[in-house]
Design a protein around this nucleic acid. Sequence first.
DNA 1: GTCTATATGGCGATAGAC
DNA 2: GTCTATCGCCATATAGAC
Lengths: 197, 197
Amino acid sequence: MVSETEKKIFEAARSVFMQKGIDGARMQEIADAAGINKAMLHYYFRTKEKLFVAIVAEAFADFFPNMIDIALLDLPIRDKIGAFIDRYLDMVGKNPFLPHFMIHALYRNPELAGEVVANMGHFPKQIIGLIANEMEKGTIPKSSPQHFVLNLVSMLIFPIVGRPIVQLIYFDNDVELYNGILKERKEEILKTILKEQ
Amino acid sequence: MVSETEKKIFEAARSVFMQKGIDGARMQEIADAAGINKAMLHYYFRTKEKLFVAIVAEAFADFFPNMIDIALLDLPIRDKIGAFIDRYLDMVGKNPFLPHFMIHALYRNPELAGEVVANMGHFPKQIIGLIANEMEKGTIPKSSPQHFVLNLVSMLIFPIVGRPIVQLIYFDNDVELYNGILKERKEEILKTILKEQ
DNA sequence: GTCTATATGGCGATAGAC
DNA sequence: GTCTATCGCCATATAGAC
């Protein structure tokens, strides 16, 4: 049983930690966002770090199941990869801070690897196996399944996490222009990894 | 004229800020790493923020000239892109924290965009122009030069900045295995963006 | 469970002797 | 220029009334 107060704290903490990380976040800011006082944060979560770990664990626990069930869809591989891209961009639309948060959290807190692994199930093996299978069938270009997946997620995620710098350097910090580029990414990624001319 | 002490402070600050960011860094830690006391940091740089901005500006000011002169080499485009990849991986070898630092610094401090732009010269336009030119010549597959460059830097940089999470999820946190993967990236990236089967 | 008030320590920054 | 000592503040965390 989870109280209303605990839920409000959790939502506020998610918002603040996602945007500022554990170092940049302030317990007072989380309390304000939750509409309660600082003492309640410690009553429910004891320490700032425990609260942060809970948010990280939730983020990863939500992420993998949300991505993996696409592998189960009965679709041609091109559509399946397209759905994978759509799903990711949809998650990012709902929470623009998620990609940077996941990367930065594990970058600065590698000791949280255990929390992450506990929540990812068979996600990686399923994805790699799926790709290897399609390569055998000849429906996608034969190469290393690991590199294929790495290429896919790189071209999908980097334009998001690197947005502030890429948008600035290559697109004069033009937000609308960059939004347009992002809309074109799906087709561009598919054409590139499937090596369509 | 820059004193020895100032140099030592700068090197220590670079090391600490690169690894921990401005929020995670402590002036005391920088002073210890420099082998001097906290008061000297403020004597030379007045505030933590000014010191941080100086480090960010230096990082970007070093980066672009180091990457752009490859465009001037008289090489076939495949070799030129290969040299671009080599140069980047070489920089990362010397400073593994650089990619994440550059992205995170601008992510959390977008107001530093001005510092960055001031130091990047004509880097972006030169790169895009070079690619557009090669597409006209037909030496690389015709598409959008912007997406081509975005694909290239994505496949190059994401496996570095996302290393903690990618290595964990797809490679069981096996450091040696992941080092091997990174060594294969150059050929893999070239084959993918040039759409070689 | 929820609040106010406070303990406790660490932070960036400065004063001032040398 | 370099140091020690310290200021003033703000952070996390707790005590204790209700």
